Computed example of a mutant assay.
Amino acid sequence: MDDVVTCANCAARNRLRAAPGGQVPVCGRCGEALPWLVSATDETFRAEVDAGVPVLVDFWAQWCGPCRMVAPVLEALSRDRRGGIKVVKLDVDSNPAVSGRFQVRSIPTLMLFRGGEPVETWVGALPRRELDARLEPYLGGSASGG
């Protein structure tokens, strides 16, 4: 399953596919970095967390109210920090192998990966300001396109 995102620069809709070598996806029309927000499964997870930028994984479930509260925060983060972070959503109900492997016991759980390995874990629906503060040591600088 491919995810579709809209370019913040030219409004073109782009289909996100696995990028070779974990490269940041760019708009097919204007070449600007795209918001990198994709869904993963137990089968695709390893490839999704292997990227050239930090990867924030959202372990969530459809029935989880706090998960629905954090979803727009993560969408905005992927837009504002496009080119600097990848956001991966993993539904724990449909993908028990990965959530079990990382011992996810509460949702939402946000796990930050660098070089394909977890470096930080945060449990609960964090407000945007707090999430930005926690990510800052790993992302640095200001938003790249927002």
Rank of each mutant, 00 (worst) to 15 (best):
Asp2Thr: 14
Asp2Asn: 12
Asp3Thr: 15
Asp3Asn: 15
Asp3Tyr: 09
Cys7Pro: 03
Ala8Leu: 15
Ala8Cys: 06
Arg15Gly: 05
Arg17Glu: 12
Ala19Pro: 06
Val24Ala: 15
Cys27Gly: 10
Arg29Ile: 08
Arg29His: 10
Glu32Val: 13
Ala33Arg: 13
Val38Lys: 03
Phe45Ser: 05
Phe45Val: 06
Glu48Gly: 06
Val49Gln: 03
Asp50Gly: 02
Pro54His: 13
Pro54Ile: 09
Trp60Arg: 05
Ala61Arg: 00
Trp63Glu: 04
Gly65Phe: 08
Cys67Gln: 09
Ala71Cys: 12
Ala71Asp: 14
Glu75Asn: 13
Ser78Phe: 14
Arg79Thr: 05
Gly83Leu: 14
Gly83Asn: 14
Lys86Glu: 09
Val88Gln: 04
Lys89Tyr: 04
Val92Leu: 03
Ala97Leu: 02
Ala97Asn: 01
Val98Tyr: 02
Ser99Asn: 08
Phe102Thr: 05
Val104Asn: 05
Thr109Arg: 13
Leu110Trp: 01
Arg114Val: 07
Glu117Phe: 04
Pro118Phe: 03
Pro118Gly: 04
Val119Pro: 00
Glu120Cys: 01
Thr121Gln: 10
Arg129Tyr: 00
Pro137Gln: 07
Tyr138His: 12
Leu139Gly: 09
Leu139Glu: 03
Gly140Arg: 12
Ala143Gln: 07
Ser144Cys: 12
Gly145Val: 06
